[in-house]
C-alpha cells in the first residue's frame, strides 16, 4: 500500500509548464521571468534566499496568485485563464478555476487545517463537497490515508490537539484525498520543532517513491539530496541555477548559489 498510485497512461506534455512568469506586488517586481517544466513523477526542490519569490511562484502554479505576464499550464491547460473564440486571453470562470485547483494539492507552511472539523472530516470534506464523492467512499479513503500517514487513532480529534508534525501529516492526507496529479509544498517543515521534521519528511519520501509529481520549497538538504530529481535555485525572482542535487550542492555554478549554500549547508 502506498500513498499514491500513478496512472498507467503517459503524459506527452510536462505536468507543469511555466514560461516567462512575471508578478509584481504594487511596484515591487517579485517574479522576473520564471521558466520551469516539470515532468510526471518528477520531484523538484526549490531553494533560494528569503524573499527570492519561491512562495509566490508556488502560489502562481494553482493561481492563488494571479500572474502579470507569461503563462502557466498544468497538464496542458492554462491555469485560471483561457483563450476565447477571438484568440484573446480571458479569465476562466471561478468554477473552472476551482476544478483545476482540485487537481493540484497544496501543503502550506502553517497547515491551515479546518479547526472546527475533526481530523477525519478535514480529509473527507472536499472529496464529498467538491468532487461529490459518495460519503461512505470518501470516509473510507480518508481513513486509509490517515492510516498511511500513521495517524489512524487520531481520526476523531480536533486538529488543534495534535502536534505540528501530526497536523502537517493530516494536511498532506487532506490534499491527497482529492487524488491530485501534482503536489505543491511550501516549506512544509519550517514551522515545526526539529524533532517533528522527520515524520513529515518520511511521508513525503513515501509519496515521492510512489511516483507523485512534487514541487517542494524546502531547505532540508538531506531530504533534497535523497529525494529530489532536480534542485532549482531561485534568486531575485528568477531561476538562476538548476541541476541534480549533488551537482548543485557540490559544484554550484552561480556565485549567488554559493553564497546561499554556504548559509544553509
Amino acid at each position: 500500500m502506498t500513498l499514491y498510485t500513478a496512472p498507467n497512461t503517459i503524459d506527452i506534455e510536462p505536468i507543469v509548464r511555466a514560461v516567462g512568469v512575471h508578478k509584481s506586488f504594487g511596484d515591487k517586481h517579485i517574479l522576473t521571468g520564471v521558466d520551469l517544466e516539470v515532468a510526471r513523477g518528477e520531484v523538484v526542490v526549490l531553494v533560494g534566499p528569503s524573499g527570492a519569490g519561491k512562495t509566490t511562484f508556488l502560489r502562481t502554479l494553482n493561481r492563488l496568485e494571479a500572474i502579470d505576464a507569461g503563462e502557466i499550464a498544468v497538464r496542458g491547460e492554462r491555469i485560471g485563464q483561457r483563450t476565447n473564440q477571438r484568440g484573446r486571453l480571458v479569465e476562466r470562470s471561478v468554477r473552472e478555476l476551482a476544478q483545476q485547483r482540485a487537481e493540484i494539492g497544496f501543503v502550506f507552511q502553517h497547515f491551515n487545517l479546518f479547526p472546527n472539523m475533526t481530523v477525519l472530516e478535514n480529509i473527507w470534506h472536499a472529496p464529498v463537497h467538491v468532487k461529490r464523492e459518495p460519503k461512505a467512499t470518501a470516509v473510507a479513503y480518508a481513513n486509509e490515508l490517515l492510516a498511511r500517514v500513521g495517524l489512524a487513532e487520531k481520526a476523531d480529534v480536533r486538529p488543534r490537539s495534535l502536534s505540528g508534525g501530526q497536523q502537517q501529516r493530516v494536511a498532506i492526507a487532506r490534499a491527497l484525498a482529492m487524488r491530485p496529479a501534482l503536489m505543491l509544498f511550501d516549506e512544509p517543515t519550517s514551522a515545526l520543532d526539529p524533532e517533528m521534521v522527520g515524520e513529515v519528511l518520511a511521508v513525503m519520501r513515501d509519496l515521492a517513491a510512489a511516483g507523485m509529481t512534487m514541487i517542494v520549497v524546502s531547505h532540508e538538504m538531506g531530504f533534497t539530496r535523497e529525494v529530489a530529481d532536480r534542485v532549482i535555485v531561485m534568486d531575485g525572482g528568477r531561476i538562476i541555477e538548476s541541476g541534480y542535487p549533488d551537482q548543485v550542492f557540490t559544484a554550484p555554478q552561480h556565485e549567488r548559489t554559493r553564497q546561499f549554500l554556504s548559509k544553509v549547508l
Binding site: 471561478v94 476551482a98 482540485a102 502550506f108 491551515n112 479546518f114 463537497h129 467538491v130 487532506r174
Partner: peptide, 27 residues
C-alpha cells in the same frame, strides 16, 4: 478567520463562495 483557511479551501477546489459558506462563515 485566518486568511489561510480561505486559501486552503480554494486549494482544495472550492469556489470563493463555497469557501465562504463552508469554511469561513461557520468559523
Amino acid at each position: 478567520v485566518d486568511r489561510g483557511q480561505n486559501e486552503a479551501a480554494l486549494s482544495l477546489g472550492m469556489t470563493p463562495l463555497g469557501a465562504m459558506r463552508r469554511i469561513i462563515v461557520p468559523q
